[in-house]
């Protein structure tokens, strides 16, 4: 990628801008599934103090929580429940802390998935997860270009996706959430496919920001910023007016 934004590099002490100097603590929920190190390393790269963890106390104290996931919906849900992390995820969302779901970690936030009929999702978001159209190759394993829906600058979608309309992200998936009012961005893959959703303190991406080069790191940096605001203050992200000047609504 040309034009890598040096602002994403974390050589400068992250958190230096916010007085107390502490990098926001982010818990990446570790329930034994897949490659989680990439998510942790990418968050550290953009200024977080990120931990792969299943420790309730560490998760409860985190400023923000990330739920990753790869593989099958049913297998991920049972592993998550077995580790007791379903309750931790629900608590973090209920607390209003910034919450990021990635890939199957996004899909688990919904009520159910066609991939694993009869398995209940977390149900933190309404709706279901459905197969990609059978007119296209499954999985979608490629980079694709985000098309952001119009958003308010100070909304969750606005704060996470600012400047990212039209950027390319890396996808590996065979299912996706059904389009709804929560849809924040789509990609074209045999028709519009939901790429991101946003609601209150939840943002979820079907793509892998930790594997999407500079635009992916930018999105994670936006998340770290939300967590920084959360730090100490418990700030309501819907009223983060001090950032409004930086934001660019999608056209």
């Amino acid at each position: 990628m040309s034009g890598v934004d040096q602002g994403l590099e974390s050589e400068a002490p992250a958190g230096a801008s916010n007085g107390d100097g502490r990098r926001p603590a982010i818990a990446v929920l570790d329930y034994g599934i897949g490659n989680l190190r990439s998510a942790q390393k990418a968050l550290e790269k953009v200024g977080a103090d990120a931990h792969l963890t299943d420790s309730p106390s560490m998760i409860e104290e985190a400023d923000g929580v990330v739920l990753p996931g790869v593989g099958a919906f049913g297998a991920c849900m049972s592993a998550l429940r077995e580790a007791g992390l379903d309750e931790q995820a629900e608590q973090a969302v209920a607390d209003g802390r910034p919450f990021l779901g990635i890939c199957v970690g996004m899909q688990m936030l919904f009520e159910e998935s066609e991939e694993s009929p009869g398995v209940a999702g977390l149900g933190l978001l309404p709706g279901r997860v459905v197969w990609l159209p059978d007119t296209v190759k499954r999985p979608q394993m490629q980079w694709n270009r985000l098309s952001c829906r119009p958003f308010a600058d100070d909304s969750m979608a606005g704060r996470m996706l600012r400047g990212l309309d039209g950027s390319w992200m890396y996808f590996v998936h065979s299912l996706a959430a059904e389009p709804s009012d929560l849809t924040a961005a789509t990609v074209d893959y045999g028709g519009p496919v939901v790429a991101a959703v946003a609601a209150d303190n939840i943002f979820a991406a079907q793509f892998h920001p930790e594997k999407s080069a500079e635009p992916g790191l930018r999105l994670l940096a936006n998340f770290v910023e939300l967590c920084r605001d959360q730090q100490g203050s418990g700030a309501d992200i819907n009223h983060a007016g001090d950032h409004a000047a930086d934001l660019h609504p999608a056209s």
Binding site: R37, A42, K45, V172, E210, K211, G216
Partner: peptide, 11 residues
């Protein structure tokens, strides 16, 4: 693999 994962954020 671990060293690459520290610095490179593509698959």
């Amino acid at each position: 693999a671990a060293a690459v994962a520290e610095e490179v954020f593509i698959p």
